[in-house]
Design a protein around this nucleic acid. Structure first.
Lengths: 211, 211
DNA sequence: TGTACATCAGTGAACGCGCGTTCACTGATGTAC
DNA sequence: TGTACATCAGTGAACGCGCGTTCACTGATGTAC
């Protein structure tokens, strides 16, 4: 990555840097004021540009949003990667699940945008699930999938006829995503011991996959 | 409800009817064109009014949205109520969970709006969870809670030190909500056997609560 | 090394649009006597 | 039962606003000889 940037001309380097500054500004606005306050003018203001200048770097507002979302998924994935991979498999799964939730809570508007955007390019018909962005290198889902696979190899999770590895990872994803979504929207003001409840939920689903 | 309306003067009755027509129009627009196409002008057009006329019935666009959402929660609840309550408790829980998901899939934009709106009145500090709209008569959560309670009484769910009835219902809600959300947003184009996977997820969480 | 020129990065002003809301108004509906 | 009046339901036009995007422009940067 760094080596790759070194190969670029100073011009191309500055270009890439400004492009990144635009995305950073967009992210900051979303974080501080919510996604509906994100406008070309607001971004331009924040990096001391005129709105027209942004079109040197992105073709439209939509492109900027798409790029910000892609970066968000990468960031979410990285947050989950900070969990030590040598934890006992089930504990590992619990921890990356909690990391997913934590990311959503500290970046609610960003998270909401990431999973609310409907602009993903449609798959051509006949494409398998592997082509879906869910299986991208940037996505966090493969981490869940690997985690489940590891737990299965350790004999801590029993794949059944009714629950493949894929489906187990999907269940796990659903429960953490549901918790994340509910907590940043409908349950925002709910007085409740979520630390306890979330752990309980993750333990329950883990039990449900056990042999 | 009907009797109550009969008591009203013809004037009040027409007023209530128009108010409902406005909400119906709003709902139809959300369903057909998405929540971002919902405007006072669009609503007015649809019921052959001028935009200004709407202010006879609602103080602002925000009020209309709030009312539409409240109605949405009522509708979701009613959908879940169509599940026969005399099913075996665990099967009952599975079925109302699937009904929740089905509602979201047939009204994606409506569902998204209902659970994305941030305009719920904040609880005054010190309020218990019972005061939260989650526990309203309109909310679907109490159905999950009762379902879990019933399963517990039948001995099919084992409340543990680590998983109270409340937490079990929360887990269940999280998983169906997560599925619903993922399927109407990020996984919209995902080619996958969801009928199977969703059932598997619900069975897994049920197993995790079993004695 | 110096000069002429092409390209690049960024500006300022304006475009047209759709929006929520307001306000003076008017005809229709209901009420009081 | 008829008339005068108050209230109600709804209109049309306009308000001011913020938005994404375009376009002719200009000074700065890099390139070729």
């Amino acid at each position: 990555m760094q080596a790759l940037e070194d190969d670029l001309s100073p011009r191309a380097r500055r270009y890439a840097r400004t492009q990144q500054a635009i995305l950073d500004a967009a992210r900051a606005i979303i974080h501080e004021q919510g996604a509906d306050k994100l406008s070309m003018r607001a971004i331009a203001d924040r990096i001391d540009y005129s709105p027209a200048g942004l079109y040197e770097y992105f073709g439209s507002k939509e492109e900027i949003i798409a790029a910000v979302c892609r970066q968000g998924h990468r960031l979410l994935r990285q947050t989950m990667l900070t969990v030590p991979p040598d934890l006992p498999p089930v504990e590992y799964l619990t921890e990356i699940g909690l990391a997913y939730i934590r990311f959503a809570l500290s970046n609610p508007d960003y998270f909401l945008l990431m999973f609310t955007q409907t602009s993903a390019p449609a798959l051509e018909p006949g494409a398998g699930f592997v082509e879906h962005e869910m299986m991208d290198a940037d996505s966090s889902f493969p981490l869940l999938l690997q985690g489940v696979q590891r737990a299965r190899e350790a004999g801590l999770i029993q794949p059944r006829a009714e629950l493949s590895v894929m489906e187990a990872a999907y269940s796990l994803w659903a429960i953490v995503h549901g918790i994340a979504m509910l907590r940043i929207t409908y349950l925002r003001e709910m007085p409740m011991d979520f630390a306890r409840a979330d752990r309980a939920a993750l333990e329950a689903i883990a039990r449900g996959m056990a042999p």
